[in-house]
Amino acid sequence: MIFEDISVKSGNFNGRTYTIKTVIGSHIYEFSIYGLDNAGFQSDKIYLDNIIDSFSLN
């Protein structure tokens, strides 16, 4: 599983994205939280951590 946390600036937009990716067979599964600003990102990042904890193969 890969964890990626990047900050992006484009024009007036200062966003932050937190992503986990994993490869299973011929598929890439990816979960991301997109925050439009750093404060908003911080408030919702915990949800992705919870999703990671619940993630399992069927």
Partner: peptide, 9 residues
């Protein structure tokens, strides 16, 4: 303005 995105490629 915050989003959770899941994709399978």
């Amino acid at each position: 303005g915050n989003y959770l995105v899941f994709d399978k490629t």
